[in-house]
Design a protein around this nucleic acid. Structure first.
Lengths: 243, 243
DNA sequence: CGCCAGGTTGATTTCGCTCAAGCAATGTGG
DNA sequence: CCACATTGCTTGAGCGAAATCAACCTGGCG
């Protein structure tokens, strides 16, 4: 999701460096001041819960630094990592808009900085700045688009294909390019979460990982992944059968 | 998704009987007149395409009668039925809002009546009626919620459980209650589409169906399904193993 | 009448899940 | 500081579920 602000370098949220990519860049001076008053910055340690599924809504959150996991639980204790949120993303706005309890949990994956904007403030901002409502609308559209893509992949790809695709997405976000053209990722999530993201057991993920390793597609060492050839990884996506 | 109009029996779209459940019930007199001018009612035969994935947007559509399938294709010709739309639902509004091409196709599943509202009209309505924008927003939230639920089920349930769940949803929409407490559905979709909705091959669906039949959970005859005991069907959802 | 799409069924193979054991890293209380 | 639990990960064995390939049926429809 790439939202570009109409007024670059103006009225952006002061603490965040995301600037033009945040939802707040359309605010005028008074609205910006209101945001500054109602905003509260906080750091979260790895694994900390930002808001929990079932909690009543207390405003919205804006990710400033780090990575946040959006997760859903069921009664049996199963959990699925539905999405990842990055600096510039607003989260928790859905239950704010509907006035219902949170339908998902959000947790810090690694050290994270998040601003909380309380209900009165965000209500005021929405009233004074129609463009903000539009931002949320477009954010929703992006998320729905993302969910539809995921549903389609879930229905058409093999587990190996799904993992390859997920690695490719993670490379785009977290990847570092090496001198020899290979790329490395520091995975933001555990194996179990990788498994839940593609709808497989964690043992299955382990096996696929070791096969990708022996096939030379991707080399795993803890949460470090090295991908010699990204094109080769991409070629794995729609292949039902291996070499 | 149950949206209730603030002004019942007033300013609703004239041809539709959905009245309070449509997105248009908030319009005032002038906006209502604008809608009447820009609206064009049309009947679609079974299987007809309303709009196709890749088409440029030409406004939005409002389902008046029948059932519409929202489908996504890939290059290889695979298709997945992502959602169903019913009278009162507005479709095609996402690509209108983003100004991009349609990311999904919509097709009539059986005889269907749909109103088309052209771009200038819907643009004007949105400008004059902020509540309409809010309607779209809540529609998006509902769809995203639905997609998240689907992703979670896709990751946690067996194919049998997914099919049981899908039948339960369809019973709610299409079911008729018999005298003896059993319920019947006239499936709006083919077996292949049932398969794509739960991410399985159509042969697998055939087998699960015959097993549900012999287990006495649901009896299939063409697109007619009879469910003696809905509770028994619901109990199938989270059961990984059969009796 | 023959064709064809949609559906069923069978045989076989592959994939992925379950159960289970083992291992490394981390943390904890004595 | 060590014994010991805990957590996350890997690996193996066996099994069940589902995909694949294929034959065949059935009801429309030109």
């Amino acid at each position: 999701m790439d939202y570009v602000c109409a007024k670059p370098d103006k009225h952006r949220c002061a603490v965040c460096h995301v600037g033009r990519r945040s939802d707040w860049c359309d605010l005028d001076d008074t609205a910006g001041a209101m945001l500054e008053r109602g905003r509260r910055r906080r750091e979260y340690g790895s694994g900390t819960v930002v808001f929990a599924q079932g909690d009543s809504n207390s405003g919205v959150y804006c990710v400033s630094g780090g990575t946040v996991g959006i997760r859903r639980f069921d009664d049996a204790g199963n959990s699925v990592l539905l999405a990842l949120a990055y600096p510039g993303d607003t989260i928790g706005y859905r239950s704010f808009l509907t006035g219902t309890e949170h339908k998902t949990s959000a947790e810090a994956l690694g050290p994270t900085v998040i601003c909380h904007i309380d209900r009165p403030t965000i209500t005021g901002l929405l009233a004074s700045t129609p463009a903000l409502s539009r931002r949320f609308l477009e954010r929703l559209i992006g998320e729905l688009e993302h969910a539809h893509d995921a549903m389609f992949r879930q229905a058409t790809l093999s587990n190996r294909g799904k993992l390859a695709h997920l690695l490719l997405i993670l490379v785009r976000r977290h990847g570092r390019i090496h001198e020899n053209g290979s790329q490395s990722i520091d995975l933001p999530v555990s194996r179990r979460d990788l498994a839940s993201m593609i709808g497989a057991r964690h043992e299955t993920i382990s096996r696929i990982i070791s096969r990708l390793d022996t096939d030379g597609i991707a080399h795993f060492s803890g949460r470090q992944v090295t991908i010699p050839n990204v094109e080769a990884l991409a070629a794995e996506i729609d292949r039902p059968d291996a070499v």
